[in-house]
Structure formats: structure tokens, C-alpha cells
Amino acid sequence: MQYKLVINGKTLKGETTTKAVDAETAEKAFKQYANDNGVDGVWTYDDATKTFTVTE
């Protein structure tokens, strides 16, 4: 399945996608991506759209 990440950071904004077997695996990949880019915020997930959002 394909999952999307929407980033609403202080210095980084945008979107990225990943393919993963489940939401938990996608979340780990997205959190690593956010961490690598210095984004630390509040996470939400919408199962209907398979979209994670992180807001600083």
C-alpha cells in the first residue's frame, strides 16, 4: 500500500510518499525521515486516506 506524509514543519514543509506493508511500517519510515530532516512535532494519521501529518 502507498502512504503519504504531510510535513508542516517550522523550516520544512511538503509531502512525501512511501510504499509499506502496513501503517506501522510506514509510520516508522516517516518518523525516521522527519528525524533525519530535523522535524519534531505532533503526529496524526488518517486511515481513510492513508495519510500521516506531522506539525511542529
Results as ranks from 00 to 15, higher is better:
E24V: 13
K4C: 08
E56F: 06
E24W: 11
T53C: 06
A23C: 12
M1T: 15
G41D: 01
F52M: 02
T55G: 03
G38V: 04
T25N: 09
T17M: 12
M1Y: 14
K28R: 11
T53H: 07
F52E: 00
Y3M: 02
M1H: 14
M1P: 11
T25H: 11
N35V: 13
A23S: 09
M1D: 15
Y33C: 04
E27T: 04
T55I: 08
T11D: 10
K13H: 10
Y45M: 02
E27F: 15
Q2I: 15
D40H: 13
Y3P: 02
N37Y: 14
A20L: 03
D22M: 04
N35C: 12
N8R: 10
G14S: 13
T51E: 04
Y33I: 07
T51G: 02
Y3A: 01
D36E: 12
F52Q: 00
F30G: 00
D47C: 06
E15T: 14
T55K: 05
D46F: 04
E27L: 15
G9D: 04
E15S: 13
L12H: 12
Q32I: 10
T18P: 03
E56R: 03
D47L: 06
T49C: 04
K10W: 09
V21T: 12
G38F: 06
A34I: 07
V42F: 10
D36L: 11
D46K: 03
L5N: 01
E27W: 14
T51L: 04
T55E: 08
D36Q: 11
K4H: 12
A34Q: 01
T18W: 05
W43Q: 01
T51Y: 03
L12I: 14
T53R: 05
Y45V: 02
E27M: 11
V21W: 13
E15W: 13
D46L: 04
K28L: 11
L5S: 01
T55R: 05
D46I: 04
G41P: 01
F30V: 03
F30K: 00
K4R: 12
K10V: 13
M1N: 14
D46S: 06
A34V: 10
Y33Q: 03
V42G: 04
T18N: 05
V42I: 11
W43H: 00
V6A: 04
Q2V: 15
E56T: 08
T53A: 04
K31T: 05
T11S: 12
N37W: 13
T51W: 02
M1I: 15
A48F: 11
Q2F: 14
F52D: 00
A48C: 08
T51V: 06
T17E: 08
G41C: 02
T25G: 09
L12P: 04
G14N: 09
W43G: 00
T49I: 06
V42Y: 08
A34P: 01
T11P: 04
N8P: 03
A26Y: 01
K28M: 09
K19C: 15
Y45C: 01
G9Q: 05
K13D: 05
V54G: 00
D47A: 13
M1F: 14
D47H: 10
Q2K: 09
V42K: 09
N8H: 11
Y33E: 03
V39Q: 03
D36V: 09
A26T: 01
A26S: 02
D22C: 05
T11N: 11
V54I: 11
V42Q: 09
F52T: 00
Y3C: 02
K13R: 12
T55S: 08
D36Y: 07
F30E: 00
Y3L: 02
A34L: 10
A26I: 02
F30L: 05
V21I: 13
K28G: 06
T16K: 12
Y33D: 02
E15K: 07
V42R: 08
G14D: 09
T25S: 13
T17W: 15
Y45Q: 01
E56K: 04
V6H: 05
T17H: 11
F52G: 00
A48S: 11
F30N: 00
D40S: 13
Y33H: 05
D46E: 07
E27C: 13
A48E: 12
D22W: 03
A20R: 03
G41Q: 02
A20T: 05
G9N: 05
K50I: 03
N35H: 15
K50H: 13
E15R: 07
Q32E: 09
Q2R: 11
G38I: 04
V39W: 08
I7N: 01
V21K: 14
T53E: 05
T44Q: 09
E56S: 06
M1C: 13
T17R: 07
T55P: 01
N35G: 07
I7T: 03
T53G: 03
Q32R: 11
Q32L: 09
E56H: 06
T55H: 07
T53M: 08
Y45S: 02
D36S: 10
A48W: 07
D36G: 06
D46R: 03
T44F: 09
T51M: 04
A20N: 03
D46Q: 04
K10T: 12
A34T: 08
T16C: 13
K50A: 07
A34S: 04
Q2M: 15
N8V: 14
T25W: 06
D47F: 07
Y45W: 03
K4G: 04
V21L: 13
V54E: 00
T11I: 11
T18A: 08
A48H: 10
T51S: 04
K31D: 02
D46N: 09
E24T: 11
T55Q: 06
T11L: 11
K13W: 10
A48K: 11
T44S: 12
D47N: 08
V21H: 13
F30W: 02
A48Q: 10
N37M: 15
A34R: 01
E27G: 09
V39M: 06
A23E: 07
D22G: 04
V54R: 00
T17N: 08
N35L: 14
N37V: 14
D36R: 08
D36W: 06
T44P: 00
N8M: 13
K4N: 09
V21M: 13
K19V: 15
G9P: 03
Q2E: 14
